[in-house]
Design a protein around this nucleic acid. Structure first.
Length: 473
RNA sequence: GUCCCCAUCGUCUAGAGGCCUAGGACGUCGCCCUUUCAAGGCGAUAACAUGGGUUCGAAUCCCAUUGGGGACGCCA
């Protein structure tokens, strides 16, 4: 029995990745199987090494380490898809040679037009297969001319495909609903669909345990397995974690970065316990259990399918319970590693060195580097002569811009915020004061950009969002 | 719009036809403990979406409706 978690290294390490990883790993360990980490970095534009490292760090923080993966190796490597492009190319070519796939030369404009037409006609599929039966000579000619193209799979034109889901039973989908999916992009990289199927087969993955959002594309995968003549793995789709309003969990409505939870001071074991309660329960309905107990009793039959809301209140309660059960020495150790470990104090101290007269001044002047605080009310957040509505709009823009910062350092933060001065039209001093109050809760602080760099992206995002929310007219 | 998934207290869930006048937990509200605040103890609040079947019997099975969610990318 072999399972995998396959995150894509774009952006911040996601709580959903940890959720899926937990269930994969628990299932594998229950049955003596192997848990594989595979990095799906087939999106050249968005994948970054930092993001990949953050995924490693966050999963390890939670104790969700893997038996095989890019950094630990294993007999089925490489485990990074960008290092396997030749494999995908060869497999795509094989399907073309067998007449199961074809070159498609549709341009972005053509596709946009097709999408519009399909939408107008109330159809789901957009691509109209116009290049599916191009004469061989023309294909050769266009290829020789170096025309940009992709490789698409020939989907069956009629009939239906049955997806067997381990939790839901059979799901039948009309093949008419299915596009001729793209296998190989014009940059020569595989799409998720191809890379995923090829790797799961080559890595001998027996159970694909992933999020529910994949259900609609699973028939494509089933058909791809068939095209290759391979046996498909067992598919198990887990419910999606939700925001308070029941939509799919998202950074705009909920802290989703595992970095946020780590830096805010959630204990990894509490976090894991909490994730284990999302859609799953112990036979005795225990609220508190550790990973080993979860593994011992793990059974997908105990899964409930309604999408669970990620409720911070309950997480807080659980985390508090774990803290209360720590022996004083153990708590001290935790505090020390959280507060002083990994050089955090060394980053904070220089920022206040010039500003404190007694060592004791350190504590009140640095609270926001450590603890959370409630967002200030609008009257304290607003500089003189700034309208709340304007501040609100500006902060929404700032928050989005901060979300998009790829490398979290002083220079990027500064560049982003200065740009926001232009975008929002607020005076520099006004905008920076709002941001300062949002991020630190105080008017007088060490330099803003450096402080934000030290506080970390995840907490800054959260605080900016909270302040924005407070400013909502 | 089209396709798919889902449906028990506000939230996380137990419940696999009679054990259910539906249990636990978080939250909320009381009371107790207490110099304060927590924690803790006790109690209260609150749900089987609706309508049809099937059955002696349905939260549990089937169908429809409604509601919610997801997908419809050369992103994963």
């Amino acid at each position: 029995m072999r399972v995998r978690v396959a995150p894509s290294p774009t952006g911040d390490p996601h709580v959903g990745t940890a959720y899926i990883a937990l269930f994969n790993k628990a299932f594998a360990e229950k049955h003596g199987g192997r848990f594989v980490l595979r990095i799906e970095d087939t999106d050249q534009k968005r994948s970054t090494a930092e993001s990949e490292q953050a995924i490693f760090d966050s999963l390890r923080w939670l104790g969700l380490d893997w038996h095989e993966g890019p950094d630990v190796g294993g007999p089925y490597g490489p485990y990074r898809q960008s290092e396997r492009t030749e494999i995908y190319r060869a497999h795509a070519q094989r399907l073309v040679d067998e007449g199961r796939a074809y070159h498609c030369f549709a341009t972005a404009e053509e596709l946009a037009e097709m999408r519009e037409t399909a939408l107008a006609e109330g159809r789901r599929t957009a691509y109209d297969r116009r290049y599916r039966d191009l004469p061989r000579e023309e294909v050769e000619r266009r290829l020789a001319a170096g025309e940009s193209h992709v490789i698409r799979l020939k989907m069956p034109l009629g009939g239906s495909t049955r997806v067997k889901d381990g939790l839901r039973g059979g799901i039948d989908i009309d093949n008419a609903e299915l596009d001729d999916q793209i296998l190989l992009k014009s940059d020569g990289f595989p799409t998720y669909h191809l890379a995923n199927v090829v790797d799961d087969h080559l890595m001998e993955i027996t159970h694909v345990i992933r999020a529910e959002e994949w259900i609609p594309s699973t028939p494509k995968h089933v058909l791809l397995y068939e095209a290759f003549g391979w046996q498909a793995p067992v598919f198990i789709h887990l419910p999606l974690l939700r925001n308070k309003d029941k939509t799919k969990i998202s950074k705009r409505k909920n802290p989703v970065s595992l970095e946020y939870y780590r830096t805010t001071g959630y204990l990894p074991e509490a976090m894991l316990n909490f994730l284990g309660r999302m859609g799953w329960s112990m036979p005795d309905e225990a609220e508190k259990f550790d990973y080993a107990q979860m593994v011992e009793h793990f059974d997908f039959g105990r899964m409930s399918l309604g999408g669970p809301i990620f409720d911070l209140d309950k997480l807080d309660w659980l985390n508090g319970m774990y803290i209360r059960e720590l022996e004083p020495e153990a708590l001290v150790a935790r505090l020390q590693s959280w507060l002083l470990g990994s050089g955090y104090l060394a980053e904070v101290a220089p920022l206040v060195r010039e500003r404190i007269k007694r060592l004791g001044d350190f504590v009140p002047s640095t609270t926001f580097f450590f603890g959370p605080f409630d967002a200030l009310p609008p009257e304290q957040l607003l500089p003189k002569k700034v309208e709340q509505a304007d501040a609100y709009k500006a902060m929404k823009s700032v928050t989005d811009a901060i979300d998009a910062v790829a490398t979290w350092d002083e220079a990027s933060i500064e560049a982003t915020l200065r740009e926001q001065v232009e975008v929002t039209g607020l005076k520099l001093r006004d905008l920076f004061m709002i941001v300062r109050l949002a991020v630190t809760g105080q008017k007088a602080t060490p330099p803003l950009f450096e402080s934000m760099a030290v506080i970390g992206k995840a907490r800054c995002q959260y605080r900016l969002r909270e302040a924005t929310h407070a400013l909502k007219p």
